[in-house]
Design a protein around this nucleic acid. Structure first.
Lengths: 135, 135
DNA sequence: TATTGTTATACTCTATAACTATA
DNA sequence: TATAGTTATAGAGTATAACAATA
């Protein structure tokens, strides 16, 4: 069996594994009525931060954060408040948002197949390989 | 550091690594004027097959194959021909398609970071972990 | 002039539903 | 009636461009 072919197979499996992880995440947050991007944002909001910072952490465009913030704000999970620099909007979890963040965290942790299917030494091995892959 | 937190970090890195692999693939096929799904389909068309079989291998809906086949046909890379069962359309690479498939294969192989960043034993390790993860 | 955020728009990947032709 | 493929449509996730306000 061709070496190149075998290596491509691994790449395909890597993408499949990531899809499975994402599907697990989506299944975990769907019952909470949150979209995947909003749930991801919620997890990142461990402390108040400007929308710009959130877009950096989510690695997405700033304009997309407006949409996510709208959704979270409508659900009463965050507030927007202007920063000292008047251009900046600081996103901050409400009390409901803090509770929801914990709920999301618990839900996605329970369904995380990295935890479910790999023991500690496997996880360490995988992590090292992924770091090498990401360079 | 929390164990749950660390495990979630690995899941995040897994998704990032897969995104990197996909981005490599997209960058490799973009200069050829192919969309990612069409390039994927092309790689799977190692022999003539019904659209239904291709949808199984791409793990997507049949209706999506119609779109992909349209694109490949317009580019002169495949032909549709009815099978013995008159409901079936057999997709078959043209000569140009066969050449293009080889070009795609070479291009994505060259940019495949699994090959570039991991040696043979790392790859075997990674593969085993991914299989376990996919269960 | 550069940056934050907003708005409007559009693109990619993909699925669902309703349909047709054949089996 | 079940299956292969098509068509039209829709939805999720995300980006681009133009813009307002502030720096």
């Amino acid at each position: 069996m061709d070496d190149i072919e075998a290596t491509r197979e691994i790449a395909v499996r890597l993408v499949r594994a990531a899809n499975a992880v994402k599907a697990d995440f989506a299944d975990a947050v769907a019952p909470l009525g949150l979209s995947v991007p909003s749930a991801r944002a919620l997890l990142l909001l461990d402390e108040p931060m400007p929308m710009r910072v959130l877009s950096d952490r989510l690695t997405c465009d700033q304009s997309y954060i407006t949409r996510i913030a709208d959704e979270l704000e409508e659900r009463g999970l965050i507030t927007r408040a202007p920063g000292e620099d008047r251009r900046v909007q600081i996103l901050k979890l409400t009390r409901t948002g803090t509770r929801m963040r914990r709920t999301v965290f618990a839900a996605v942790s329970e369904t995380n197949r990295v935890a479910l299917r790999l023991d500690a030494s496997d996880r360490a091995e995988l992590d090292a390989l992924l770091v090498r892959l990401l360079g």
